[in-house]
């Protein structure tokens, strides 16, 4: 479960990157966070993960406050950042082991996890090579594997589908569904509406730092009273005329 209440963040100037956002993501659901480029998605995610400190408001991950109890809260989630260009000089398995040590994963469990994940993501032949030699999609996959290795209850993913081939993208969506169905939380940002439309239980739309909508997809259509219109059209209208 993720709870944001009255979260605000501004950088240097008067312009608020995130403006007084209230958001509650329940356990057991896949939650899509939509918005155009520069809307405040990444800033919100950075605050949720403890990378940025909010100016105001509080953020709870599974009931733990990220500012007050950062280490415990950070153990609850796994985070996939929007750029997978990290640790390029490490070999795949070295990275996975490093992440396992960081998250205290026992030897036996990590070995099983590494084998299971590399099979599912078809990365078994890449683990011995430096991440630098990976394609964009493979880098994305190894980062996702590193996140899943400690079995976090909350997944936070920033634009996770970018660069994935259709097969890997399908696997990830499948895994997101499985994870949520076990009573866990999946929160991800995207600007690709098709993805949101297919897998999200609920969505929120953010633009210019303000939350425009939060609810189920059909509610969104009803809310804007344009039955029959494509979601894309609604989305474009909503973020343009704000």
């Amino acid at each position: 479960m993720i709870e944001l209440s009255k979260v605000t963040k501004s950088f240097n100037s008067a312009v608020k990157a995130v403006d007084n956002i209230d958001l509650k993501v329940e356990s057991g659901e896949i939650f899509g966070f939509l918005g155009p480029n520069g809307a405040g998605k990444t800033t919100t995610i950075k605050m949720m993960t403890g990378i940025l400190a909010p100016d105001n408001g509080s953020i709870l991950i599974d009931g733990l406050d990220i500012s007050k109890d950062p280490l415990k809260a950070k153990k609850q989630f796994g985070f996939v950042p929007d750029s997978p260009n990290m640790f390029l000089k490490l070999k795949g398995f070295e990275y996975l082991n490093f992440m396992s040590d960081i998250y205290d994963v026992p030897t036996k469990e990590r070995k099983e996890k590494i084998e299971m994940l590399s099979n599912r993501f078809e990365m078994t032949k890449a683990l011995g090579d430096q991440i630098q030699s990976y394609s964009h999609g493979m880098r994305q996959k190894i980062i996702i594997m590193g996140v899943l290795i400690h079995n976090p209850s909350v997944w936070i993913l920033d634009e996770p589908m970018t660069g994935l081939d259709p097969r890997a993208s399908f696997t990830l969506k499948e895994m997101m569904r499985e994870h949520a169905d076990k009573g866990n939380t999946v929160f991800f940002s995207t600007h690709v509406l098709d993805v949101a439309e297919k897998i999200c239980d609920r969505v929120a739309v953010i633009n210019k730092g303000k939350l425009l909508f939060c609810g189920k997809l059909d509610e969104m259509k009803a809310h804007f009273k344009v039955q029959g219109e494509s979601l894309e059209k609604i989305f474009l209208d909503m973020t343009e005329h704000e």
Partner: peptide, 10 residues
């Protein structure tokens, strides 16, 4: 893999 993935301190 077993040889290489042994838990160590942070």
């Amino acid at each position: 893999l077993s040889r290489k993935s042994i838990r160590s301190t942070v």
